[in-house]
Simulated assay, not measured.
Amino acid sequence: MPTELEELVEFLHHGNTQIRQIAAENLVGYTTAQPSLFKYNQLEPIKDLKMLIKDYPPIAKNALTMLVNLSEDSEVLGCLMEDDPFMESLLKRVTDPKEKNADLVCMLVANLAKSPNITKLLTLSRTVPKTLSTSPFAIDQLLDCFVKGATGTYNADANYDYLSYPVADLAKHEEGRVHFLTPREADANIVPLTKLIVFTEHGSTIRRRGVANTIKNICFHIPAHERLLANEGDETDSGAGIGLLPYILLPLMGSEEYDDDDTEGMLDEVQLLPPDKARESQNDIIITHLETLLLLTTTRQGRDRLRAIKVYPIVRELHLHSDDPEVREACDRLVQVIMRDEEGEGKEMPKLEELPDDDDQIVEIA
């Protein structure tokens, strides 16, 4: 015999709209308090929720909220990801400029990206929303939503910030990294990564975090390091330079002043910063950028490039102005690589723990 709650769950597919709405409203809390309830009768409630996202807006909103909470479960995740028509229904809502629940849908897509099957977005072709994109591919359309969402020019009810999370997860896959580094013929030959890197200092923490992790994951693709390190538009053996470095370094910098020895060779974009320049406020994002720089030291060319543009003084100042032990540790790891001798070469440069004490703050490595 079904329990009272199981009977309530069955009302999700009731023919009366008001009853469906009451059931949805009352069940939201159980998605976190008792998620196993929604596996009743071979995931029948999940199948109902997939249908309810097409229901009236208040019901659809509750259904999406429940699916966001429940999609952490691997069995539920599999049920959602194996349903291609369901994925298309989500994409239709994300790309609809009048969809009021678009950000909730983005949150659900972000959770679905934990499945390796999310790579289907790289090749999935669908109708082109004329006011949004020129590309028939789902991933390109999602990136266009993300870009336009930053200024609210596509959907007044959505900022699309959470789309940065599935993009970061896609960049964990080799085919995803290659996609984001390849000019898109259907999108005026734009390299997708260049659409993302401009948001490393955006006002949204969610957007900054997702973009930072996307960049880091892409930097695991070592053959692309030459292009990533080169100035934007400069020709390299592997294609046009992407000019990634300013977008990683600027979030690490505050309004500190550097002496002439430090600034000689620094990128133009990171010099003469305004007196109100603020450093990234989230320590986890700072650490992600430091780890990205560390990945870029994988090759000798990368290490030489970071030395030439004076990354060391920037990391030194970050270390001096941070009281977070994990940030300091990440600074130290990077310094150990970029300031050490290459085999058979000259005097080793100072490590962070060897720097003289600052007048106002003692330098310590946790």
Rank of each mutant, 00 (worst) to 15 (best):
T3Y: 09
T3D: 13
E7M: 09
T17F: 05
I19H: 02
Q21L: 11
A23Y: 03
L27W: 01
L27A: 05
G29Y: 02
Q34I: 05
S36M: 11
S36F: 06
L37S: 07
Y40F: 15
N41H: 12
Q42M: 07
Q42R: 10
P45E: 06
K47T: 09
D48A: 15
L49Y: 12
E72C: 10
D73L: 11
M81L: 09
D83R: 06
D84A: 05
E88K: 14
E88H: 14
D103N: 08
L104K: 10
C106L: 05
A110T: 01
N111A: 02
A113N: 01
P116N: 03
S135V: 02
P136C: 06
A138L: 02
A138F: 06
Y154P: 03
Y154C: 03
D157T: 11
A158T: 10
N159C: 10
N159M: 10
S164V: 04
S164F: 02
P166E: 07
D169P: 00
H173D: 12
E175D: 11
H179P: 00
L181Y: 05
P183D: 11
A188M: 13
N189M: 15
L193H: 06
L196W: 11
E201W: 06
S204W: 04
T205L: 06
I206D: 07
R208H: 00
V211H: 01
A212T: 03
A212F: 03
N217H: 11
F220M: 00
H221V: 02
E235G: 06
E235Q: 14
E235S: 14
T236E: 01
A240P: 00
G241L: 09
G241V: 04
D260P: 00
D260Q: 15
D261Y: 09
M266G: 03
V270M: 08
Q271C: 10
L272D: 15
D276F: 02
K277Q: 14
K277R: 12
E280Q: 07
N283A: 13
T292C: 11
L295S: 12
Q301L: 15
R303D: 04
R303P: 00
R307N: 09
R307S: 04
I309Q: 01
K310D: 00
K310N: 05
R316I: 08
H321W: 15
S322W: 11
D332V: 04
L334D: 03
Q336S: 12
E345I: 03
G346S: 09
G346P: 03
P350N: 08
P356D: 08
V363C: 07
